[in-house]
Design a binder for these strands. Structure first.
Lengths: 243, 243
DNA sequence: TGTCGGCGGATTCTATAGAATATTGCACCG
DNA sequence: CGGTGCAATATTCTATAGAATCCGCCGACA
């Protein structure tokens, strides 16, 4: 047992227990994969990770189940969970799908949003652009989320929204703040989306949003490339699911 | 405790233990939702379901985590898991996304598959058509899976394939066999896909596959409607994820 | 009468134990 | 020298216990 400080009742090593451990661990692992700390064919051992985090194996296992169904790790029953490789193609595909979904939702929002809500969004966008100029990445991240969340909720398309969040979760919260050029891109691309929303032009909104997402995807690929996180495209077969 | 027969070591109530309990429970719940046994705002109580299945709460909870990230149930921390409503729009959206992904994969397959593999697929398709004529739904289901699996694997696009299986999982395995007209539709639609594959025409393959999936989606909606499984479109806000 | 607060039951959530299963190293045999 | 069986070890996986939290109820008090 390397660390193994078993937390007794009443005292916890984790600071604030607002979210559940499973979610926290899932985020932790997503981030570890994203920064290349956990790499392609590694097994993630539940007990080890649990000891590292000062918790028990149960929530770790739950987190890995989630990550498995998200496609970030593969579950080999009675063997363990292992990290799946990330190729540039994978990221591009993920964002292509995300662009498709987000585009459709933006199109619906263009029909559904009334002018007052668009006005409110516009004010958030103005703040976002200011934050982008100030290089306040965290603030940009927050405002960006607020904008996308509002657009998606207005579409009232629950199922599609949940598919979207699934692809969005792939990139850990706050990660974009660390990417060169992201804040500027976000500030810039949104203006085209807003033009379309104001005109209630569904097709234009779809195109603008989709292009925005693909743009972000390209930035992410560049970032991952330069940080040597991506795997080579594998010619062989390493299916993520047995389907 | 209604059932509560605690399984001692060596003997299990579940027949064959090839898959893990979590997966089995997930399938079980997916099916219960699909046939309307579990309905819209119901909570799924882990201990209750565990007792019903003669297992413990841990794998049940793991299954619900998976279903949560798939978007079938909503997790309210410290409250429980509850079934999310299914509207006709939701199913249509799900299949629209699935059509987009499967179409893209078919397009890649049209470029990647060599003639020998297409020939092999064609033989499976011939058997599928025969099975469809014989009303052997189970056999159609198997062959159908084999065809789609081959097409998807040939594309070597792991990430996109895993997104696809996520949407595919929404409908439990073998469920289509119970749907009126599905076998015929499958047999019929595939022929257009095969024409495109043989011609290595990526765009035609994309269109044919997408149309096929949307067709299946329409059949599913009709089925769910006539079995009174669908919820009314909710005007209010019931977000699946907090994003 | 209406509201606040605490009490009790139900449920979630994390920790932990033990059985089942996989893996590794090594001795033994061909 | 190579392969095979076996024992030791590591890990997964399910069950279970107990703490934390939530919910409804009821009585006190304004």
């Amino acid at each position: 047992m390397p660390v193994g400080q078993a937390p007794r009742t009443g005292r916890r090593p984790v600071p604030a227990v607002r979210h559940q451990l499973s979610e926290m661990v899932a985020s932790h692992v997503r981030e570890a994969i994203m920064i290349g700390e956990l790499r392609a064919p590694d097994y993630i051992r539940t007990e080890h990770l649990a000891a590292e985090l000062g918790i028990s194996a149960t929530p770790v296992r739950e987190a890995l189940m989630i990550l498995h169904s998200e496609g970030a790790v593969r579950w080999e029953p009675r063997r363990g969970f292992r990290v799946l490789p990330i190729t540039a193609q994978d990221v591009a595909d993920l964002f292509a799908v995300q662009a498709h979904i987000a585009g459709e939702l933006a199109a619906r929002a263009a029909r559904a949003l009334d002018d007052a809500e668009i006005e409110r969004l516009q004010r958030i966008q103005t703040r976002l652009e200011a934050a982008a100029r100030d290089r306040d990445a965290e603030q940009v991240d927050r405002l960006n989320h607020e904008i996308h969340r509002t657009i998606n909720r207005s579409s009232a398309s629950h199922r599609m929204t949940s598919l979207l969040s699934l692809t969005v979760h792939y990139v850990p919260l706050g990660f974009f703040g660390t990417i060169e050029g992201w804040a500027e891109a976000s500030a810039h691309d949104h203006s085209a989306v807003f033009d379309a929303l104001r005109a209630h032009d569904a097709d234009a909104a779809r195109d603008a949003m989709a292009e925005h997402i693909r743009h972000i995807g390209r930035l992410l690929i560049d970032h991952l490339k330069s940080h040597d996180v991506l795997s080579e495209p594998t010619s062989g077969n390493r299916p993520a699911h047995q389907t």
